[in-house]
Amino acid sequence: MKYVLEGVPPIIDAIREDMNDLGLDMDKVQDILDRVARHRLDKAILGGKDRALGTKTEVLDSEIEIALQ
């Protein structure tokens, strides 16, 4: 995922001016993307681990909710 996420900043840089003019907050998009995409991945992996090993890891959804506000 790191490899994919590294491809995002050059896209944002290429169209940042247009995004800003239109009112899109690209720094927010980048920030949310970094945190939320990783959080989602962790959540899925730990969910699988818990189901296999019978453990219970607390994974909070708060960061995902922030993304969707």
């Binding site: 989602r40 959540k43 899925a44 992996i45 969910g47 699988g48 681990k49 189901r51 296999a52 090993l53």
Partner: peptide, 14 residues
Amino acid sequence: NHIYIEDQFKELYA
């Protein structure tokens, strides 16, 4: 995406 990755890791951890 969540369900599939979770299922995969469940298998891997088992």
